[in-house]
Nucleic acid binder design. Structure first.
Lengths: 234, 234
DNA sequence: TCGGAGGCAATTGCATGCACTTTTTGCCTT
DNA sequence: AAGGCAAAAAGTGCATGCAATTGCCTCCGA
């Protein structure tokens, strides 16, 4: 074809499409319920329908999109019930991770966890939501990795990405930033103490609270709008 | 297009292929490390390569097959480490399910659980491994459903299917049948008592034991695998 | 005999085309 | 005017074909 792969980075075209579409779902550019037209996407990304179809299939297997036979694909719409179940599962998964962390983290992992956590305190004082968001993600990733279980890590990561569309902007809630840090602090303290049960409980509680915070947004956040925002990929 | 649907049952061709290939992996007809040739599969199932490719992509997203770009697909080969992690996760997931069951199961669910469980006792006495296997699957499915959490159910089901290739023949181990039933009994008793903590622990222990039992088989059961031990099974 | 470069066969990756399904639109009937 | 039916339009599902990549085999040189 007309030469090169300037889309998203290397990999096969299908992989690029999975990442491209998946990212747009997770980051909220494509919103739950939005129709995913094969030809539009193909034109949009300058590929044929085949890789788009394969990508949609894989995203469907991952639960990010929903496919109705002969009737097209849409960004996965989850019921309130299912959303609750996902947050609940997320709480349990993070609880397990935290428990494992308390039992298994190496010395350097513990030090890194605490160092980064303490560093993020500054962002709370500054009220830097964007930056804290980044630290928050990193913090949780540390928990997943620290569990030393590749599979738990997988389950947690996929669940997290499926929840991502529904937890945006949670830090805009008044006071959420400071509270989040305090909750993280409880988790870190318990892990450093080696108290698995306490770490697990703290992590579960943390996610549960995030869950409630996010539910507010989820309620008024499920459009069927078909406006395909033009994105500058480059 | 000679439209005959005599393959596996309804759904699109791709769905049929996902089920067909997935089943063969889960049931061990296709074994870890085995090459999945697109044209062979296409010929074998009398479809073109396209649905086969899509199916392989989805199975790859599910973790059942491994895809190397431009180099074909193989049935997923898991390292001993990853296998351990999966069993460990499975134990935790089932523990959560059992805990939730104890807290949430309806009256009729509890009755059905106990009834079926008691019925399966007969199979243990007869040493009917095949039939018990079926009841065993059903028993665990009841736990997943009884947790009343669609997402935990999903996580559990996919993890279970990814483990399936490695837990075949576990009931052939001497005495495993009776022990399995006793472990189930502990879970059921705790659930009926409404004791979530005990139910969780019993379920975790149960899976852990299955894990150890299966590890025996997993060791000598990876045919073409690059980095595993030699094969002892027939 | 060993190592490497080049070419050939086999296989994957993607584009395109056609068939089938669903949805929409326009016309006819009541 | 409203409802229903039918035909067209749109869009998905799958097959086929071609390009590109990989792996293997051969041949040549040291």
């Amino acid at each position: 074809m007309s030469g090169k792969r300037s889309l998203i980075r290397s990999g096969t075209t299908v992989d690029q499409m999975v990442r491209a579409i998946g990212d747009r779902i997770v980051t909220g550019v494509l919103r739950p319920g939005e129709k995913l037209d094969e030809v539009s996407l193909a034109v949009r990304f300058e590929v044929s329908r085949t890789p788009v179809r394969e990508a949609l299939g894989q995203l469907s297997a991952m639960g990010l999109v929903e496919r109705r036979p002969n009737r097209g694909a849409i960004v996965a719409v989850v019921t309130q019930e299912h959303l609750t179940a996902m947050f609940e599962s997320m709480a349990e998964l993070e609880g397990i991770c935290a428990r494992f962390c308390a039992e298994r983290m190496t010395g350097s992992e513990r030090r890194a966890l605490e160092t980064e956590h303490q560093a993020s305190a500054r962002l709370v004082r500054l009220g830097a939501e964007e930056d804290y968001e980044y630290f928050n993600t990193e913090f949780h990733s540390r928990l997943y990795r620290g569990a030393h279980s590749t599979h738990i890590q997988e389950l947690t990561a996929t669940t997290r990405s499926r929840l991502a569309p529904f937890r945006r902007a949670q830090f805009r809630l008044a006071g959420r930033l400071a509270k989040s840090w305090q909750e993280h602090d409880a988790i870190v303290t318990a892990i450093l103490r080696g108290d698995g049960a306490a770490a697990g409980k703290a992590a579960r509680d943390h996610v549960s609270i995030v869950s409630e915070a996010s539910a507010v947004f989820a309620a008024g956040d499920q459009p069927n709008a078909a406006s395909t925002t033009s994105v500058t990929s480059g």
